[in-house]
Every structure is written in structure tokens, then in C-alpha cells.
């Protein structure tokens, strides 16, 4: 595995870890089934991409990333409010289907939508099934900086973002917001009876989840510099869901673990051969089998709902236990 590939794989895993964290807010903590996270991911990536193509100023350097990332988060947030206000009234499976529909609509609209080319592609139309692309800005447009690319998100930058978001969300989980959301997950009617404003907290969870997914989209764009709508399909949403189910619904460290495990597996499988069959080619087949087996055998995932798995806690307790009674009697 070359250094470049290693870099790209680590970055991709980090981006999917952020997506898993974002989905965990709405699915794991609030208990609303969201099957269209790829839609917010796509909106974030496209918003970041279009902002970069239209409003990049090489003099600003890193600030360009801040601008496009904020645009991505804002775009995802606005769409989540537009979708959330009417749809969060729906319950259970209906919400799952509407969000699934939202993801698919986003992808289909992006396939059919054309944008003006801006400064980078003057006179052209960009978008459609081939997606949008950030090529180098030629030096003669900005004499001070000879060639400018927006490639910014390297693997360590993405992983710093993963850690910050993970700590932030764990803190949210411990706050009264998080407790209210988890209360809604356990029993909506009981939560309402306890004085929790259900629609408000559902909306907050939905918004938070979409904004984080939008940030993941911005990182994805600044890593790849070329995005196409085909990437943001239903399989992408399902993969994210599989990650949080594997890690344990409701556990943020579990979500990151799930993303790492599922992200590394295909690269390991690519080099494994059994009876002449390359296992890497059957990745999706194995994902499907894994999902079915996982739900049957370990419905709580690796971490359950805890941030630290129960068995580690037990191990620590055993170490701290006072010495056994034998000493006392002796």
C-alpha cells in the first residue's frame, strides 16, 4: 500500500467516522430512523465545492476552507430545517421512508442540475452526472500565489476534526439536551409527560446531525477536489447506518470504532484470496450478510450505549478491588 493510498484511506475512514457520529445523534440518541444521511453529506459537499469554485481567494489561504465549510454546514442546516419542520411529525417507519426519499431526491436532483462554471470554468456548465471539480487556479489570475489548489483536508486534519466532534457530541450527550433526546428515544409519550418539548428536541437533533454531516461533506470535497452525485447513493447511507449499528447505537466512541472497522475491512479483504475468489469483490455481499448476522447475534453492537464498553469497565474495577477476604481472615 503506497503512502498516497494510505493517506486517502485514512482520510476516507475519518470522513465516514464523522458521518457515523452525525447519524448517531439522530438514530442512536434520539431514536429516529434516518436513511438519508447521504443527502446531507451530498449537500455539504456540493455547497463546499460550489463555494470554493466561485469564491476562492488565494490570499486568504486556510480561511478559504473555513468559508466553504461554513457554507456547507449552513446549507445542510437549512435543508434539514426545510425537511424537518413538516416531516418530524411522522413516526418510525414513515420518517425512515421520507428521509430515504430525501436522500434519493437529492442525488437525482444533483444528477440533473447544472451550475454556471464561474471563474474556474468560464462559459461552461458544470454539474450533472459527472459532478463538479476544482482544478488548479492558474497563476495569472492571482499573481501572488502561482498555483492554488483547495486541497486542504489531509488525513491528520480530518482526524483532528473527528476527535473534536466526538468530544463535543459526548458532552452534548451528557448535557440536558442529550438526556432529553435519549428520553425521547426511550418513550416519546413519557418524555412529553415529563415536560420535554418533543418537536423542539427532535428538530435540534435533526439540525445538529445535518450540520455535522454537512461538515463531513466539506471535508470530503477538500480531500477529493472532485465529487460526483453517484457517490451519495442509498448504499452510502446504509453503510453509515451499519457503522453505528456495529459500534452500538447511541455510543459515539462506538460510532468511530464502527467506522474504523468497516473502513479498514475492504482494504484487508482486497489482499485475501480464498479458493481463487478475491474477497474484495464481494464486499457488498459481505456487508449484507454482516448486517443480518449482527442484528441477530449482537443487536447492541460492540459498545452498547456506553462510551466505554462494559467489559473494560469491569476489568478496571477488578484491578481496583480491595484484596480478597483471605487476607482478613489470615
Amino acid at each position: 500500500m503506497s503512502w498516497f493510498e494510505f493517506n486517502s484511506v485514512l482520510g476516507n475512514i475519518g470522513i465516514f467516522a464523522i458521518l457515523a457520529l452525525s447519524l448517531n445523534v439522530i438514530c442512536g440518541m434520539t431514536g429516529l430512523l434516518q436513511l438519508g444521511q447521504a443527502g446531507f453529506f451530498a449537500i455539504g459537499a456540493y455547497a463546499a465545492g460550489l463555494t470554493s469554485i466561485y469564491f476562492t481567494f488565494p490570499e486568504l489561504g486556510v480561511l478559504n476552507f473555513a468559508i466553504s465549510a461554513s457554507a456547507a454546514m449552513m446549507a445542510a442546516g437549512i435543508f434539514s430545517i426545510i425537511l424537518g419542520i413538516p416531516c418530524l411529525r411522522l413516526k418510525g417507519d414513515y420518517l425512515a421512508i421520507v428521509t430515504l426519499g430525501f436522500g434519493e431526491i437529492t442525488r437525482l436532483v444533483l444528477i440533473n442540475l447544472m451550475f454556471p462554471g464561474g471563474k474556474m470554468h468560464p462559459g461552461e456548465k458544470i454539474g450533472g452526472a459527472t459532478g463538479i471539480k476544482f482544478t488548479e487556479f492558474p497563476g495569472d489570475l492571482w499573481p501572488n500565489s502561482p498555483n492554488y489548489t483547495a486541497e486542504f483536508a489531509s488525513w491528520w486534519f480530518i482526524w483532528i476534526a473527528v476527535i473534536i466532534i466526538c468530544v463535543f457530541l459526548i458532552n452534548i450527550k451528557k448535557s440536558s439536551f442529550g438526556r432529553a433526546m435519549m428520553c425521547i428515544r426511550e418513550d416519546e409519550i413519557a418524555a412529553q409527560a415529563m415536560g420535554i418539548n418533543i418537536s423542539k428536541y427532535k428538530m435540534i437533533a435533526f439540525l445538529l446531525s445535518a450540520v455535522v454531516a454537512g461538515l463531513a461533506g466539506a471535508l470530503f470535497f477538500h480531500k477529493e477536489l472532485s465529487i460526483a452525485p453517484g457517490k451519495f447513493n442509498l448504499i452510502c447511507s446504509i453503510e453509515i447506518l451499519l457503522m453505528i449499528v456495529l459500534g452500538g447505537l447511541g455510543s459515539f466512541s462506538g460510532a468511530v470504532t464502527g467506522a474504523v472497522v468497516l473502513g479498514i475491512t475492504p482494504y484487508i479483504l482486497r489482499h485475501v484470496e480464498i479458493c481463487g475468489y478475491r474477497l474484495g469483490e464481494y464486499q457488498q455481499l459481505m456487508y449484507a450478510v454482516l448486517l443480518i448476522i449482527l442484528i441477530r447475534l449482537a443487536p447492541n453492537g460492540i459498545f452498547g450505549m456506553n462510551e466505554v464498553p462494559v467489559w473494560i469497565g469491569k476489568l478496571l474495577k477488578m484491578k481496583n478491588k480491595p484484596p480478597a477476604k483471605q487476607n482478613e481472615t489470615a
Binding site: I235, I238, L241, V245, Q284, L285, Y287, A288, V289, L291, I292, I295, R296
Partner: peptide, 9 residues
């Protein structure tokens, strides 16, 4: 989730 898994399978 199982239904989605069966569908993909």
C-alpha cells in the same frame, strides 16, 4: 435493518 440487509443480499 434486517429487511435492508436481506434486500442487499
Amino acid at each position: 435493518l434486517t429487511a435492508i440487509g436481506v434486500s442487499f443480499l
